[in-house]
């Protein structure tokens, strides 16, 4: 396993473009997080300090940081599709196989890399959120700090699932740009199907089915936190209440999709003449 990860890391880290993209995808959410945590003074007119809003309180900080950090997953998605696209355009995939890598090992080396970077991103965000929380949070009891750390698990699963989807699209179309376009097409397709479901059945059932769609199921892992922030500000408004927690079945759905994406990628490669 380490051999395969090592192989892929050499391919990625010696490539300047992917090096920059990896750097961006890790550093950017980090910087945004740090910037947002400092006090910004707008020409002495008013000061904006997000910490004052209570968004950096434990345990809500886990929810907010993972939600915003996951918006930056797109940068690494480019890395994932290009690491497949490059293998095809340089014909190095063919050469790797001739040199004695099996098709299974090839897919696994990509998948391990995805897991590796997802884990790294999760750890980084976890540490950053912990530090900022320790600085700003009004509550610092261990039981409160570590409540809802399952958002970190959700974040990790979400990244692995999304990048595995990118892996499949990369293998499917062989070209990075088209693979990214496919992601967009899938996004639209999911909404069209959702629209049809609403039209044919009813809203409630359609929403339930929608939660099983690949992109939607990943999004559902970490619900938007805005409503929750509002809830903490106006606890008396009951109509704001919604279910934002990470549920085990949401994680299972995404894990099942991940397995499907990886296995399909392998089947695709296996049946292809290079």
């Amino acid at each position: 396993m380490l051999r395969l990860l090592n192989l892929e890391l050499q391919k990625l880290l010696l490539n300047n473009v992917s090096k920059v993209l990896i750097f961006i995808s890790f550093i950017l959410p980090f910087t945004v997080l740090i910037l947002s945590s400092i006090k910004i003074n707008f020409f002495n007119l008013f000061t904006l300090e997000l910490g004052e809003l209570g968004v950096f309180n434990f345990p809500i900080i886990w929810h907010i940081t993972t939600f915003f950090a996951s918006q930056f997953k797109f940068f690494f998605a480019i890395v994932v599709v290009s690491m497949i696209g490059n293998e095809y355009s340089n014909k190095t995939l063919k050469q790797n196989l001739i040199d004695g890598l099996s098709k299974k090992e090839f897919i696994l080396s990509k998948f391990y890399t995805i897991v590796f970077f997802s884990l790294l991103a999760t750890i980084l965000i976890g540490v950053a959120a912990f530090c900022i929380g320790m600085y700003y949070s009004s509550y610092k009891e261990a039981s409160i700090i570590f409540r809802e750390t399952n958002f970190l698990l959700a974040y990790f699963v979400k990244l692995v699932g999304f990048f595995s989807l990118c892996l499949l699209f990369g293998m499917l179309v062989k070209r990075s740009a088209f693979a990214l376009a496919f992601l967009f097409v899938l996004y639209i397709l999911e909404w069209i199907v959702f629209g049809l479901l609403v039209w044919q059945t009813n809203m409630e059932l359609a929403e339930k089915i929608q939660n099983f769609f690949p992109l939607k199921s990943m999004y559902k892992l970490i619900d938007q936190p805005f409503q929750r922030i509002m809830m903490t500000k106006f606890p008396e408004k009951m109509d704001l209440a919604y279910d934002y927690a990470v549920h085990w079945y949401e994680i299972v759905i995404v894990l099942v999709w991940t397995a499907i994406f990886v296995i399909l990628s392998y089947k695709l490669l296996k049946n292809r003449d290079l």
Partner: peptide, 8 residues
């Protein structure tokens, strides 16, 4: 044809 990583 020789297939290698051009950036390495």
């Amino acid at each position: 044809r020789p297939n290698f990583y051009p950036y390495m």
